[in-house]
Amino acid sequence: MMSPEVFADYALMIAFVAVSVSQLLAMVRLVIGPGAGDRILALDTMVINGIGLIVLVGLYQGTQVYFEAALIFAMLGFVSTVAYARFLLRGDIIE
């Protein structure tokens, strides 16, 4: 029976591995495509996984300074996804 602190540490390590592997899987989808829509979706997923990695690094180092980075990453990721999709739909981002 391990102590709660050790359990949380192991869980953090497992989470790092799982989110990193997810990032790699999304990158494979980004490379193989096949369509533009799939690549946008893969980029969106990579942004979400990137937020997860930033949160995990903040947990690991025990600081709150990464909160702003995660928030800005979330906002930029959403705007870029919509901009890519809009460009494919209309051939123009701002009409």
């Binding site: 869980a11 953090l12 989470a15 989110v19 592997v21 997810s22 899987l25 997923t45 996984n49 997860g52």
Partner: peptide, 15 residues
């Protein structure tokens, strides 16, 4: 953390 790791992985695995 374990639940989050599992679901993040499932999302990308499904992708």
């Amino acid at each position: 953390l374990l639940i989050g790791a599992l679901f993040t992985f499932v999302g990308s695995f499904g992708l």
